[in-house]
Amino acid sequence: MLRGFKNFLMRGDVIVVAIGLIVALAFSTLIKAFTDYVINPIIARAQGGVSPGLGWQLGRPGNNATYLNIGAFISALIYFLIFMAVVYFLIVVPYKRTQARRGLSVFGDPQPARTCPACLSEDVPKAATKCRYCGSTLA
């Protein structure tokens, strides 16, 4: 039982995913700090005055619960875009290259598909002669 567990943990895919997760969390912290301490002050300055950020006060002045903070949303959007770019270029692209060297295709374009006339399933492969769902013969 423990040997099977050890073999599962030592598979290359599990290790790649674990390392990718650790790297992604580290970059997440770095990017969060960048948006909090660089992007947010720039966005808040765009509002001018003594405003807490880029946005509008909907209720009583000074009540943060009714402050519509567009700057925080823009900052979160920038954070997301930077984080996804880092994940793609530092994790996905090298993983695709590694798997291509092993002869495997990952994150590729989906195979062409057609619709089954009997059950109307839309993801039947073009080369299939029978529908995988209803078993009807395809022309």
Rank of each mutant, 00 (worst) to 15 (best):
residue 104 L to S: 09
residue 19 I to K: 03
residue 117 P to A: 06
residue 128 A to W: 11
residue 92 V to F: 06
residue 26 A to R: 03
residue 19 I to F: 08
residue 88 Y to E: 05
residue 128 A to M: 10
residue 103 G to A: 06
residue 72 A to I: 01
residue 124 V to G: 01
residue 10 M to S: 07
residue 27 F to D: 09
residue 131 C to P: 02
residue 110 P to Q: 12
residue 47 Q to E: 03
residue 139 A to G: 11
residue 1 M to W: 09
residue 1 M to S: 13
residue 32 K to F: 09
residue 83 F to I: 03
residue 82 I to S: 04
residue 78 I to M: 05
residue 96 K to W: 01
residue 102 R to K: 12
residue 126 K to M: 14
residue 35 T to C: 04
residue 108 G to E: 15
residue 106 V to R: 10
residue 29 T to A: 15
residue 30 L to C: 10
residue 139 A to H: 11
residue 123 D to S: 04
residue 89 F to C: 05
residue 3 R to K: 13
residue 31 I to E: 02
residue 65 A to H: 02
residue 33 A to I: 05
residue 41 P to C: 08
residue 106 V to A: 06
residue 109 D to G: 04
residue 13 D to K: 11
residue 36 D to I: 04
residue 111 Q to M: 15
residue 125 P to H: 13
residue 130 K to I: 05
residue 31 I to N: 10
residue 48 G to A: 07
residue 84 M to S: 12
residue 91 I to G: 00
residue 11 R to E: 15
residue 133 Y to F: 15
residue 31 I to F: 07
residue 38 V to F: 10
residue 93 V to G: 01
residue 24 A to K: 04
residue 132 R to D: 05
residue 58 L to F: 14
residue 91 I to Y: 01
residue 112 P to V: 10
residue 128 A to L: 08
residue 10 M to P: 00
residue 49 G to D: 12
residue 133 Y to K: 11
residue 35 T to V: 15
residue 119 C to W: 06
residue 21 L to S: 13
residue 41 P to R: 06
residue 91 I to M: 04
residue 134 C to W: 01
residue 67 Y to A: 08
residue 56 W to H: 11
residue 71 G to A: 08
residue 56 W to I: 12
residue 135 G to D: 10
residue 128 A to E: 11
residue 35 T to S: 01
residue 85 A to H: 05
residue 41 P to K: 08
residue 79 Y to C: 02
residue 79 Y to D: 11
residue 26 A to H: 03
residue 133 Y to C: 03
residue 62 G to Y: 02
residue 31 I to V: 14
residue 62 G to S: 03
residue 65 A to Q: 07
residue 43 I to C: 03
residue 67 Y to C: 09
residue 9 L to P: 00
residue 44 A to M: 11
residue 69 N to I: 07
residue 67 Y to H: 09
residue 80 F to C: 13
residue 125 P to F: 12
